[in-house]
Design a protein around this nucleic acid. Structure first.
Lengths: 229, 229
DNA sequence: TCGTTTTCTTAACATAAGTCAAGGAAACGC
DNA sequence: GCGTTTCCTTGACTTATGTTAAGAAAACGA
């Protein structure tokens, strides 16, 4: 399919590879389609391969016994899910669920490992990918442990802004329930944090978007982590 | 040096490699020695190489503006620190500090990348290493977000027990301040959680070790995460 | 368009855990 | 061995955030 090819050659994982490698890669890729809410894999499932997202988005998350959800990552076009278990040889450490109609390419573990041998540039791409993911986890742990919810929210808004070209008008793209699950909290607390920011004129809500009114103070809040120091 | 060689060939990173590769690896390794408390690198430093621990132990951690410390990982003999930035090309995302007199081998980024090209078995070792680290981070995020302190403590004690051959008598090896920083809390709260477990006859403290008296309940506490469900 | 369902917000309340303070225990250096 | 420093514990207090409940707003489907 046309779109899958475009996404694939632009992905972090496969970007910059010579045409003959791309052709080989596409030969072992298998199309998979999911509807909103469909589970792609469960925590504990055998990690027999990984997925590249062609269209749609996927939430990688874990649920506590009492039902609270922590989202590790919202994965979008061109990004991968389940890559780590391919190399650690372990099961998936979390669940993955489609957030919308989603088109994936599945890569079988054995075939993929066979394929990468003798392709140092592809291997370096994988190393870079895993390293970046490690870096993101470092930030997530830091946020959960060292910042209170307003600080985490400020960090996330600034991150979103950066992702969207440093504009002051950022689109959320996800529900507030999901956002609260990314931040490691509940919708009520998120709502309060947002309300507080609005009162303090740090932000303005406009539909599903948020306008950053005072970037300096948001940055300080994100940096400080706590309301009072 | 004798010991460095022994550790190196048994490490996850270099274990199982042919002798000629080991020789090459040892050629680019540089000895570094640190005393207790010495900083090995700071958050933000350029990631110009990584370290393999030959003797001693190192804390990888981050500090909030108000001084609270979150330990990401206590790294011991045969393990590595700072590997991810070598491949992501970014700076170190945290600080590293020697917890005791520590002997390290330093591997220069450029030399190491040169060295791995054409060594698929070494590359696979690195992929496995990064993947395992990712898995550990998943658990850490889950613990911080979905479990309260007694649940995190129970998880950690069970993890320690497993690491020490599933014995009921586990050695802490680190100070309680450090333990509290691993669990994402403060010494006072840790002290209370331990006191509570002792009252409930789940554990017994004997010097710097802890005896697990009721594994079943500890496991339930770790699983449930919260005191009341 | 209307009614139903889901999502979001607000308020009152409960509680886990951080903070502050002080004393005791252990480790360390001389 | 003794004094000093660091580490650990305990208690009283504060606070951030989770919980419960209810209503408002928005999204959805017929």
């Amino acid at each position: 399919m046309k779109k899958a090819h475009e996404i694939l050659i632009r992905s972090q994982l496969f970007g910059g590879l010579p045409q003959e490698h791309i052709t080989e890669i596409e030969k072992i890729a298998v199309d998979k389609n999911y509807n909103k809410g469909d589970v792609i894999f469960y925590d504990g499932d055998e990690g027999n391969g990984f997925y590249l997202i062609v269209a749609g988005s996927v939430s990688v998350y874990k649920i506590s016994p009492d039902g609270k959800e922590q989202i590790f990552h919202i994965v979008k076009e061109g990004e991968t899910i389940g890559a780590a278990p391919v190399f650690s040889g372990k099961s998936f450490p979390a669940n993955a669920r489609a957030l919308s109609k989603t088109h994936l390419l599945f890569f079988d573990r054995t075939k993929f490992i066979e394929l990468i041998s003798g392709k140092p540039d592809l291997t370096m791409n994988i190393l870079a990918l895993l390293s970046m993911r490690l870096r993101e986890f470092t930030i997530q742990v830091e946020n959960l442990s060292l910042k209170e919810i307003p600080g985490r929210l400020a960090s996330y808004l600034l991150y979103l802004s950066q992702e969207q070209g440093n504009r002051d008008f950022v689109k959320l793209n996800i529900s507030k329930l999901q956002l609260s699950n990314i931040l490691g909290t509940v919708p009520e607390s998120l709502s309060r944090a947002l309300g507080n920011m609005k009162t303090r004129k740090l932000i303005e809500e406009e539909g599903a978007s948020i306008r950053l009114l005072n970037r300096a103070e948001l940055e300080e809040l994100a940096e400080r982590g706590k309301s009072f120091g």
